[in-house]
């Protein structure tokens, strides 16, 4: 029988298995991107002059098609998830770095002056004042990066079925089962929305200090 969630055996995964794989391949790069962006953004805040070139590099990286990355990366990592995830991590920088820089810069100057005057050192000021106050901006960046990463993972199907749910698109062609493609697209869409909703919830939980009038956006 060919149920909506029954996949051809050469995909090597159940539908749920692919969902898990897809989330991992999409979210790990965003996480890696965040870990890289935080110190990079801090440097950009500290030394204003490096921000424009950093932003330029991030934009150029974003402009490179993933296929071009794959050609280079396959030599080092083979047809693996790593090869798919590295470009995704690099793509996330173009959103995350500016989001964090803006977030950290948006801390009111009198709040920073007060922190300094009360005897906060630079490190304490970063972790206890600037970073918590940048949370809304960081999460706004994460929402864009996460959703785009979830949709971009599919490209991995081009290098030997490393595209998780995207692999179903290829299978749909091979086996003449358009339902598989519909399934893939719908599932990816729903995953994107759920991930986005999860981040909104996270922001809500992390920022009880924000005005809650007209909550949501």
């Amino acid at each position: 029988m060919n149920g909506f969630f029954d996949l051809p055996s050469d995909l090597g995964q159940s539908w749920l298995g692919l969902v898990g794989l897809h989330l991992r391949e999409a979210l790990l790069p965003v996480l890696a991107g965040l870990l890289v962006s935080l110190p990079v953004a801090q440097l950009c805040v500290r030394f204003r002059w490096i921000y424009p070139p950093v932003l330029g590099i991030a934009t150029v990286l974003y402009a490179i098609p993933s296929l071009a990355f794959f050609v280079v990366l396959i030599d080092y990592f083979g047809q693996s998830e790593t090869t798919v995830m590295i470009p995704l991590a690099l793509y996330s920088l173009v959103v995350l770095v500016p989001a964090i820089v803006d977030g950290v810069r948006s801390v009111p100057p009198e709040t920073l002056a007060a922190a300094q005057a009360m005897g906060f050192g630079a490190v304490r000021r970063y972790f206890q004042v600037q970073l918590p106050l940048a949370v809304p901006a960081i999460i706004a960046g994460l929402r864009v990066a996460t959703v785009s990463s979830i949709s971009l993972v599919s490209v991995g199907m081009l290098i030997g079925n490393q595209g998780a749910l995207g692999n179903m698109l290829y299978a749909a062609q091979t086996y003449g089962r358009p339902a598989l493609a519909v399934n893939a697209v719908l599932t990816i869409g729903v995953l994107g929305m759920l991930a986005d909703a999860a981040l909104v919830l996270l922001r809500f939980l992390l920022t009880p200090w924000m005005p809650r009038k007209g909550a949501g956006r």
Partner: peptide
């Protein structure tokens, strides 16, 4: 600095 209280315009509270 910790031995001197500091009050600033607009209070500068931690939001």
């Amino acid at each position: 600095r910790r031995s001197m209280g500091y009050v600033i315009q607009n209070a500068g509270l931690f939001p």
